[in-house]
């Protein structure tokens, strides 16, 4: 392909090719601080391409492809090329990665123990993880990721996938208030997923991205409504996490064993919160009182 770059996020080495220079330049800026081993072969390939040669220049629209393709997925305008790259990377991991059980969940870690937050889009799991990751000084919470948390089927440890955090809509202003503007990507306005702006994780989080953390607390946040904490049984947590995993079925018995162990060994709660400050306070309270 005309333009390409290589990015390593957690255990996954990506190779990303594009028909246009812009998405690659934007990626290179966001991922400049990530470790890069040029000699390491890629686990996953992402392609950003024009369906017809003239669509490179004439109303350019970015199709997302690679090792795995979603048939009939709609292309994005070139101005949203960075979002296309992010979706392409997610797609390859979601459908292709087999070394770990993938949870569609955000996570932060402290003292080698992980807080895992799972929820649908809009639950606030990304925002909570991003805010926790920015809280206090270095050495407080480590951001592990806002999209995927990887569980090692053999040992049960959580591994990080700290891609650039995808902040959406109101969360953009909320998080931007706490961080140096150089750590923010360009504003992608009015995308199919709303307004998006990427946040580069702290250097310490990137440096520690290969360090495992022991799952210590499972939260299922829900943004909006009265403040509430509901303990969640193993069965419900199990079912919710099977739905949050993109490769649970493909892993077969190993996936079942890993998930069973995770919900048996890790306390789980559903939490509702009206605003992020309350959410953070709830999380810190539960961490202090119940985390294993």
């Amino acid at each position: 392909m005309r333009h390409s770059t290589r990015i390593a996020v957690g255990p996954v080495q990506f190779r990303i090719g594009s028909d246009w220079a812009e998405p690659i330049a934007a990626l290179d800026r966001l991922y400049a601080g990530y470790p890069c081993d040029d000699a390491r072969p890629a686990d996953a390939t992402v392609r950003l391409f024009a369906a017809r040669p003239w669509r490179r220049r004439l109303r350019p629209s970015v199709h997302i492809g690679g090792d795995f393709i979603v048939p009939d997925a709609l292309p994005l305008p070139l101005s949203m090329g960075l979002l296309a790259a992010e979706m392409g990377m997610n797609l390859q991991v979601a459908l292709g990665w087999r070394r770990h059980m993938l949870l569609h969940a955000s996570a932060v870690a402290k003292d080698g123990r992980a807080l895992i937050m799972s929820g649908e889009s809009g639950s606030g799991k990304s925002t909570l993880a991003a805010l926790l990751g920015e809280k206090g000084g270095e050495g407080d919470w480590r951001l592990m990721g806002d999209e995927f948390t990887l569980i090692d089927p053999a040992a049960g440890d959580a591994f990080a996938f700290p891609r650039a955090v995808s902040l959406k809509n109101d969360a953009i202003a909320e998080v931007a208030a706490h961080v140096d503007p150089v750590r923010l990507g360009p504003l992608l306005a009015a995308t199919p997923k709303g307004d998006i702006r990427h946040l580069i994780p702290r250097a310490s989080a990137i440096a520690a991205m290969h360090e495992p953390a022991r799952p210590a607390l499972l939260l299922f946040p829900r943004f909006g409504g009265e403040t509430a904490i509901e303990p969640m049984g193993e069965g419900e947590a199990f079912v919710r996490l099977t739905e949050a995993s993109t490769n649970y079925v493909a892993l077969g018995e190993a996936g079942f064993a890993a998930l069973t162990r995770l919900v048996r060994e890790t306390p789980a709660f559903g939490i509702s919160y009206p605003d992020s400050a309350t959410g953070i306070a709830l999380v810190e309270q539960l961490w202090a009182e119940t985390a294993r």
Binding site: Q13, D43, R99, A250
Partner: peptide
């Protein structure tokens, strides 16, 4: 290379499950 060996091991394990 080590990274390829790791990827291959993943693939073999996944293929076993898929065949079962």
């Amino acid at each position: 290379p080590r990274a390829v060996a790791a990827l291959f091991a993943d693939q073999r394990a996944a293929a076993k499950v898929a065949q079962a």
